[in-house]
Amino acid sequence: MNIETLGIDVGKNVFHAVGLNAIGEVVLRRQFTRSALMRFMGKLAHCKVGMEACGGSQHLGRRFERFGHTVRLMAAQFVKPYVKSNKSDFNDAEAIAEAVMRPTMRFVTLKTVEQQDLQALHRARSLLMGQRTALINQLRAFLLERGMTVPKGVAALRRRLPEVLEDADNELSDRLRALIDQIWQQISGLEARIATLNAEIEVIAATDTACQHLLSIPGIGVLTATAMVATIGDGKQFHCGREMAAFLGLVPRQHSTSGKPRLLGISKRGNTYLRMLLIHGARAVLRGGDKRSDRLGPWLRELKARRPSNVTAVALANKLARIAWAVLAHGEDYRPRLSLLEVA
């Protein structure tokens, strides 16, 4: 078999592979278990291997690269147009093999083990934050049913809850008091675990060179910097900052035809977690950012005068994403340029 391109439909325990020769003819169509696939790939001559970017594909890609193969990961929506007729595992594998041969196909960069570890820390932290929020809302709902209101946020609940539990004149029964105390203990345990993850992320940010470069950008803190390094790496898979901003869903969608450009709302593609962090960081910069002496200050003043605050925050997040790409791609700190008035 002279296999030039191999498309693999990734599963949990069963994998379907379709191999194409140099002219695109199918020369292999086989189903493998995980262990059998590893043995087959270890003996196969070096070729181009295509897979959809999904759970487990990063690990497989690193293993296949150790065997000397060239691995290409693609987003699933880019593979779908190449699926012929009905959907099946072998048809999906053949579509992957055909898609990976296209010269204009966009590929996903393989992550290192360190990037995936850092990404796992962020996902675990995000999960714990969601659980804490759900429990806080549950406590506030219990108290509201008994005529007691608590403002939003864990700080307000922390101040108010001891008074509520110690007040013998309210309508809380002994059973509900015990339940509220149990939920609060659970919230406190979640906060301790979140604090541990925060400390670990801060240690990584302090020792990683790319994170230190990103921290020089206004509006980018430890969480955003580490999440960006975990997701994007050095950013060299993008040709320019706008491509990275588009990947994060910070540019308008287009529906242009007949030579007439038509821009729609923000696309919201890509990594929603990283986009959220960038927009929150942009909102932090907006508080007093228009007083900056560099070129960012006049730009923010002019934008805030003619656009709503949320639109301004997204536009600033777009600019921060482009600056972050330049910082990562060139491996340098952010150097703000002075405004024309300051230069004069």
Rank of each mutant, 00 (worst) to 15 (best):
I3V: 13
I3T: 06
D9W: 00
V10T: 04
K12L: 01
H16M: 11
V18K: 02
E25A: 13
E25C: 13
V27W: 00
Q31P: 11
F32D: 05
S35E: 08
S35R: 12
A36H: 14
R39E: 14
M41G: 10
G42E: 15
S57N: 07
H59Q: 13
R63A: 14
H69N: 08
A75N: 10
A75C: 11
A76I: 13
Y82A: 09
K84G: 04
S85M: 09
K87C: 05
S88Q: 14
S88F: 05
F90D: 05
F90E: 05
I96T: 08
P103A: 01
R106I: 12
K111P: 02
E114A: 13
E114P: 07
E114N: 00
S126P: 03
R132I: 07
R132Q: 11
I136G: 09
L143D: 06
G147Q: 03
G147M: 13
T149E: 02
V150W: 07
V150N: 07
G153C: 00
A155L: 11
A155M: 09
L157M: 14
E163V: 15
E163H: 11
V164S: 07
E171Q: 07
L176W: 11
A178D: 12
I180P: 04
I183M: 14
W184G: 04
Q185K: 15
I187H: 00
E191S: 11
E200V: 09
T207L: 10
A210S: 08
S216V: 12
T224G: 10
A225Q: 00
M228G: 03
V229W: 01
G233Q: 05
K236F: 03
K236Y: 06
G241R: 00
G241S: 06
R242K: 14
A245I: 00
S256G: 13
T257N: 03
R269L: 04
N271R: 04
T272F: 01
T272E: 05
M276L: 11
H280A: 11
G281A: 10
A282Q: 02
A284F: 14
V285E: 01
D290G: 14
D290R: 08
E302W: 14
K304G: 03
P308T: 04
N310K: 09
L316C: 08
A317V: 00
L320T: 03
I323R: 02
V327C: 13
V327A: 08
V327D: 14
A329M: 02
G331H: 06
E332I: 12
S339G: 14
L341H: 06
A344K: 12
